[in-house]
Design a protein around this nucleic acid. Structure first.
Lengths: 336, 336
DNA sequence: CTGAAAGCGCTTACAG
DNA sequence: CTGAAAGCGCTTACAG
């Protein structure tokens, strides 16, 4: 338990044990049977390592082995239930697969995404998962030049395999369930949030639109506002829309809990006097599911998404695949 | 833009530029004025680096410099607004301070905490932040043996400085505000969740108790159930308590949103017929704040906490300090 | 059963 | 203005 201020190395251990660094290395790595090192020596080395709080320098090992054992993930943000559960699942699975996971959040900023990818390459990640990346193909190119395979999650790319939710179907089902509540009326429906240019939002808009059409909502009563995800943007887009329309929607499809967070105060106030707005949200949050609003949520199946992602690792690297994972619509009474 | 499958090194660049590795190194690191390298050469090297997507091998640099530039944080979980915002803030500030942040979540498992700390030491972190750690002192010892300074966040330790919320005062104020709602009645009050052995929970219980006493609640009507944080544990502890008492509490102090998540379905059902339970929660969540319950929440000031944490870095390493950051009680009408 | 030595990709005095 | 060389802490054929 010597409190040496300096780090212990395999050379120190070798001196102490009266052996060579190579032997210590073999013992520490647990292949002393292969090296046919005496059990006695192995035990001596292990004991010394323990006593000195020895931690193998993984950077040196990585340099020497020419592989780091690190797997990286970039993610837009943590502070939201969807992405934070992705990060949490990723960590657990990466660790189980024998990797050391590092994750960086890039605040949906394309430049930060690239900077983060570069930094990860500098730290020698063996693979990189791009989650919700604005431009995954650009990152793919960067990584490909360094021989690092990438995979896309949540938002697809064209140059590497992707695992995403079935956004079209999820949005369709969610919209169906919202329309069912207002079955008799002639509702005004509004879709709000997200970026029109991103694949997920455009698929969701398609599903939303399709359901509206099938539900007999006239085109004139269907409104779409892909104003960005940020809470503030959703809020002001909603306010502006309501002012221009001189009314509130009967049915509101909110594209992510991030946008919902900005809208909530407005909807809440409304619930007092005006007729109740039926709200749907693409993304789930245990507390949002229990506000005093008439609320339906789409839960993305993070467990299956990450399962599929890690399955792709084992697959013979063949063609680029797009895997779509079904989502679950949570009604007011769904069990949590 | 050569798509070499192999990584480019400073030697490759040196060959290409017709110079030496030392020179390339100086250019890449931006101290070519100091090395008095010709602007011409510098530009040539930079151009080649760009063309080849060169990424300096940070592991090699770390080995050579004997410092990694990495700062580590362990955190119990991501999947909750408090800890995920801590992780997010930490990342941003660490990056601003010139560090490369890595964070690992340890699921409140003491063994995982130690394993994570060891792994981080292996990756040569220069400092380690222990957030909500069960046994921060043990981790401190581990790190101290390797010459790595630690700091505690959220939960304090005795061997390194700590930044935590003012748990006593926060709980006192929250309880005050809950009692104010039921000012006239003779309420039964229940505190639920957390670990009696952890500093935060015990301080919160003290504050809770103090407020109850001042509020004139007789001891017999004050109940405390530190049953752990997990949602399921809180749920069954509550059910058992209610069964034994043959009643529900009038005022419920929930120790963290994690526990609240398990309780919510029960409270919700209750709201129909029975008298409304006044709920307080130590921790804040934007959606939990807007359920149909009578709810008050304590928001921990994550920004100030991390500010204080990074301030400690700059301080001359002196005595061990315990910094307590005030919390904010959010009522039903507080702006978000 | 074990050791000496080269090599991984950098940095940094040192020498010119 | 620039290069040669040692060293950071490992791993891994290779030799014995």
């Amino acid at each position: 338990m010597s409190e040496s201020p300096k780090k212990t190395t395999i050379y120190n251990l070798a001196d102490l044990a009266g052996t060579s660094a190579g032997t210590v290395s073999a013992v520490i790595n647990g292949n002393w049977k292969k090296r046919r090192i005496s059990r006695k020596m192995a035990e001596r080395v292990l004991k010394l390592a323990e006593e000195h709080g020895f931690a193998l320098n993984m950077q040196a090992r990585a340099l020497s082995r020419e592989k780091s054992g690190i797997i990286g993930m970039i993610v837009p943000m943590y502070d939201n239930r969807y992405f934070s559960s992705i990060a949490q699942e990723f960590e657990a699975r990466a660790r189980d697969a024998g990797y050391f996971p590092i994750v960086t959040c890039t605040r949906r900023d394309p430049d930060l995404e690239v900077a983060a990818a570069r930094a990860m390459l500098g730290y020698q990640v063996e693979r990189l998962i791009c989650t919700g990346a604005t431009d995954p193909d650009r990152i793919h190119d960067l990584c490909a030049a360094a021989g690092v395979p990438t995979l896309n999650l949540d938002l697809p790319g064209t140059k590497a395999s992707s695992v995403i939710s079935d956004n079209y179907k999820g949005a369709l089902e969610l919209t169906d369930s919202l329309l069912a509540v207002k079955a008799s009326a002639q509702p005004t429906v509004l879709f709000i949030g997200g970026r029109a240019t991103d694949h997920n939002t455009s698929e969701r808009i398609k599903g939303f639109h399709e359901a509206c059409k099938k539900g007999g909502v006239p085109e004139a009563d269907i409104h779409v506002l892909p104003c960005g995800y940020a809470a503030q943007k959703a809020r002001s887009a909603y306010v502006d829309w309501a002012k221009a329309q001189k009314t509130t929607p009967d049915i509101l499809f909110v594209n992510s809990t991030i946008s919902l967070e900005g809208l909530l105060p407005l909807l809440d106030a409304n619930a007092d006097g005006d007729p109740q707005i039926i709200v749907g949200c693409f993304d789930w949050d245990p507390f949002a599911a229990r506000t005093n609003l008439e609320m339906r949520m789409v839960k993305q199946d993070v467990g299956s998404m990450l399962g599929a992602l890690f399955d792709l690792f084992r697959e013979p690297k063949g063609d680029i695949r797009l895997i779509q994972i079904p989502t679950i619509v949570q009604g007011k009474d769904s069990s949590v």
